[in-house]
Nucleic acid binder design. Structure first.
Length: 223
DNA sequence: TTTTGATCATCC
DNA sequence: GGATGATCAAAA
């Protein structure tokens, strides 16, 4: 199956991504000689994989930014209207047993958020899936203000988790970042230490960016 | 089985 | 309508 070679520079990646603007899902799928899954439920994550192939990502399933050599993470972003993202954005799984070894600066979360190539895609249910179009990509790094809030969120949530408070944490915590389940289903489990330091099991979690935040991010870069 | 890619479906 | 918790698919 057709796949682009990895881009050698940020400029090349941006140039390549700009060529997606205005393309429909059907058009990009045709260029990559692939078929669109029939059922909506089979399309979860499919757009992201399609764009990865179109742009030539290199990280595979590693816990690293998609373009490892460039330090850039790729995210498709469903937009229900201009500047209105429809969903939260998964950032990274939370390594519950090793989180205490990380700081914000060394975290896998920050590794992905320090530079992101956002590819907006129409997601309104009024547009048939194949006809949804890609918007103008945005190569973004957190502003000083955004960085401050993200760092605060991460430190706060991570501190609660590493001190055994995970059971209390839910998705309402955090201003820009939130903690939510990241698993095949609610019966999935992974190891974690409880508040007494005893090994137990819990639902795997991940850090997500709130839709409110990604909407803001796009409106602040509007021309 | 785990990590990636996310969106679905329900509850408020 | 929006946010939260649950879930689905591909790849390794």
């Amino acid at each position: 199956m057709f796949q682009e070679q990895p881009p050698c520079s940020e400029e090349e990646l941006v140039e390549r991504s700009l060529r997606l603007e205005g393309l429909s899902v059907a058009q990009l799928a045709a260029r990559l000689s692939t078929r669109i899954p029939q059922h909506p439920i089979q399309r979860k994550g499919w757009i992201g994989l399609l764009v990865e192939r179109a742009l030539g990502t290199t990280a595979g399933s590693l816990s690293a930014p998609d373009f490892m050599n460039l330090g850039i993470e790729l995210k498709t972003l469903p937009m229900k209207a201009p500047f209105r993202s429809a969903e939260s954005t998964f950032v990274s799984s939370i390594p519950l047993l090793r989180l205490h070894e990380q700081t914000w600066e060394t975290s896998t979360c920050y590794a992905k958020l320090k530079r992101v190539l956002w590819i907006p895609i129409e997601s309104s249910s009024t547009i048939d899936f194949p006809y949804r179009r890609f918007g103008r990509p945005l190569l973004w790094s957190p502003s000083e203000q955004q960085h401050r809030v993200l760092a605060d969120d991460w430190v706060f949530l991570s501190t609660v988790i590493t001190t055994g408070g995970l059971a209390e944490v839910d998705a309402r915590w955090g201003e820009y970042l939130q903690v939510r389940p990241k698993a095949a289903n609610s019966r999935a489990s992974c190891a974690v230490l409880d508040e007494d330091g005893c090994s137990t099991r819990t639902l795997p979690r991940g850090f997500y960016l709130r839709a409110r935040f990604t909407s803001m991010l796009f409106s602040s870069h509007a021309c």
